[in-house]
């Protein structure tokens, strides 16, 4: 369980980015949404200790992030950054993925097992000898996830995992996220793509100007007037509601229910 208690964060003693946020994250898919500059990334960086609270506490499975280094917390909380290229530096995919587990001080056999497992989870088997930079956008994103996954963190933070990807590659990322969730990981999805939220999340946390304005089930979230927070309501919801189909989360469900209309 990740517990955030009355978190405040002030940058350089001037800019207040987070204003008293309370939050708990367990084994679930939570979407962290909000417009640009609302404090999403600042909040997420507290969960693995990259930032330390100015006031309040962040406790990850009993560990206060103030007392642990980022490297120690990396065993429990994985953070997949937005731009995968910002982390690639090895000559091939295998070495790239093994960097994390090696830093955790694992034995060579264990590192190899984990790398193979992480590559399998992200459908990157057979890419071991490729250069990370030679991969396509979708493959790079999957590799970034594999790099974090190989450290076997219980919680995984994904910052805009599908931004800039085409339908097919975004779909692959979504499948990976669902799979990780079903395997017992807690997932925090940072995004402002409402379609992605609708498809994946069970619970939504809305940040606005550093404050938590909403925390609850997805259905209630989409009952809010999202335009007030510079967010868009997915068109799928508008159409299905108007046709009296109820709360539909997937375009395929929509197509299937179309057949039932007389």
């Amino acid at each position: 369980m990740i517990e955030v208690k009355n978190l405040w964060h002030v940058y350089n003693g001037k800019k207040v980015a987070i204003r008293g946020v309370d939050l708990t994250i367990g084994n679930e898919i939570v979407a962290l949404v909000g417009p640009n500059g609302s404090g999403k990334t600042t909040l997420a960086k507290h969960l693995n200790g990259l930032l330390k609270p100015t006031k309040g506490n962040v406790v990850v499975d009993g560990m206060d992030t103030r007392e642990y280094s980022v490297a120690e917390l990396a065993r429990v909380v994985g953070y997949v950054f937005q731009n995968p290229e910002n982390m690639f530096f090895e000559e091939n995919v295998f070495k790239e993925v093994s960097f994390g587990p090696k830093n955790l001080g694992l034995s060579e056999d264990e590192v190899e097992t984990r790398v193979k497992w992480a590559l399998k989870e992200t459908n990157l088997e057979g890419y071991e000898d490729r250069s990370p930079y030679s991969l396509s956008g979708g493959e790079k994103q999957r590799l970034a996830i594999a790099c974090i996954l190989a450290m076997k963190p219980k919680y995984i933070i994904l910052d805009e995992p599908t931004t800039g990807l085409d339908e097919k590659n975004a779909g692959a990322i979504k499948r990976i996220i669902r799979k990780l969730y079903s395997e017992g990981h807690g997932i925090l999805l940072i995004t402002h793509e409402m379609d992605l939220v609708l498809e994946l999340a069970e619970r939504v946390v809305l940040l606005y100007e550093g404050k938590k304005l909403f925390d609850g089930a997805i259905k209630e979230f989409f009952d809010l007037d999202l335009r007030t927070y510079d967010l868009d309501r997915p068109r799928l919801l508008d159409i299905s509601e108007r046709l009296g189909m109820g709360f539909l989360r997937d375009i395929n469900d929509f197509i299937n229910s179309l057949g039932m209309i007389p």
């Binding site: 490297a71 990396a74 950054f81 731009n83 910002n86 982390m87 960097f99 974090i148 450290m151």
Partner: peptide, 16 residues
């Protein structure tokens, strides 16, 4: 700024 982001990304992979 980019250096800071890269450092954050690598620290998240256990780099000390």
């Amino acid at each position: 700024m980019l250096t800071q982001t890269i450092m954050d990304a690598q620290k998240s992979r256990g780099l000390e």
